[in-house]
Amino acid sequence: MLQRIGLPRLRWPRLVADNSEMPASAQIDPRARRRLLDEISNFLIEHDLEVTPSNLLAAHEACSGINPRLARRIEWRREQGEPITQTWLEEATVVDPCAGKKSIEDLAKDMERGIDELSRASKSMRRATSDYGDELERRVDDLQGPCDTEELISTLSNFAEAMIARSRQTEEELKASERETAKLRRNLDRARQDAQVDYLTGLPNRRAFEEVLETSYREAQDTGEPLSVAFCDIDRFKTINDTHGHEAGDRIIREIAETLSSLCTKDCYIARHGGEEFVLLFRGVEPQDALAQLDEAREALASRRMVNRRTEKPFGMVTFSGGIADVLQCADPREALAAADQALYCAKRSGRNRIRLAGEQSRAA
């Protein structure tokens, strides 16, 4: 991928066992980090882009290979002779605001409110305890000297009633704080779930997939079982959107999500990687077998003839292309994703509506 956007590909070194818990940035060879920095700076300079946090993030994702979709879009734009402008890059990297049901700002407000409630309840308890202690100390001092028994009993009774009332008030404050804390915990759990679910298809999203890929990669290394990853991309999706509208395009995305999901068993994991792209992880499945399964789904979809329900106009043949890589043949899971993406690119270049294995030069559809 990186060669196609004018940058040399960065290869990640295989990690040694005693470094397995180190952050990824600490596991990369210093020379590799230097090459990545050079690639990022060259990208920004070549396309006359400002050095901003968002541009640096986009350049890092494209140059490091962690966002193959962005790298491929850059490459295709270069092939068409069109510039990589600031406006285009911002549109290419925009994050859908509907991806989460609850914004970070709302969640932060909930957390702040919950902390305030807990703080108030805690202060109230400390204040009540201090008041009780001071008052009891005074009553004990009164008992040391001469006093009117009836007056003392009345005073102690009033004090006890005040203590009971204050205790009940504090108890109610604590209950309210507990309810707020429980609500905050539910919101946090929901936010964690939303952060890993694609709002349009209901499938896991890219973040969730990358976590499963990392875990499955380590497990496959330990067990020696095969592990295959596939990248799929809807063919000519821009034409579908331009011709039928984004609502119809969303329907096509959901239809293909269902088609690919039909492949998934306990040994297969599917996610929407972004836009019109999907990724699948085949655990315990050789790449050739994964290709056969994916090819069967491709043929089933290509045989369908879907119609735009709103306009009654046919979509024509809707297809997807795919690339498959053997994860254990790569030094890093991200390198396997890049290899699958390269195979997908070959499938697109050779006519679309076909599946390619990484490293395979040709295969009849």
Rank of each mutant, 00 (worst) to 15 (best):
S177H: 02
L118E: 08
A59D: 03
L203G: 07
G114V: 04
A302I: 08
R9Y: 03
E117H: 11
R363V: 15
E180Y: 10
C232E: 06
A176G: 07
L7A: 01
P30I: 02
A347C: 04
L263P: 04
R185D: 03
E135H: 13
R34I: 14
T85K: 07
A339F: 05
R77M: 04
Y217I: 00
R77N: 06
G65K: 03
I84S: 04
M111E: 14
N19V: 13
E21T: 15
T201E: 07
E360S: 08
P97Q: 09
S228N: 10
F209S: 02
P287H: 09
A58W: 00
V307K: 05
S154Q: 02
I253M: 08
Q193N: 06
M1V: 13
L57S: 15
R354A: 01
I5V: 04
R363I: 14
E335M: 13
L281S: 06
L152K: 09
T265W: 00
A325G: 09
Y217P: 06
Q86N: 11
E247R: 12
Q80M: 03
E299V: 12
L89D: 00
A58I: 01
E210I: 11
E214T: 13
L36H: 03
R356E: 11
L337D: 01
A365M: 04
T149C: 14
I28K: 09
Q196N: 14
I74F: 03
E296A: 10
Q361D: 12
Y269L: 02
A364C: 10
R139M: 09
E117M: 15
D48S: 11
A292Y: 08
S157L: 12
A32T: 09
A32S: 11
I164Y: 11
Y217C: 04
D267K: 14
R356P: 02
E276C: 04
G100R: 08
V285W: 00
G6Y: 06
I240M: 01
D29S: 09
I84V: 00
E312M: 09
E91D: 04
C330S: 14
L156I: 12
R78W: 08
Q342I: 09
C346V: 11
C98Q: 11
T223Q: 00
L188Y: 06
D332W: 06
E75C: 09
P13M: 14
R185F: 01
A32I: 15
L227G: 04
K183D: 15
E172L: 14
A108H: 13
R166S: 08
N67M: 05
G359E: 07
D142T: 08
D267C: 08
Q196Y: 07
E61M: 14
A220G: 07
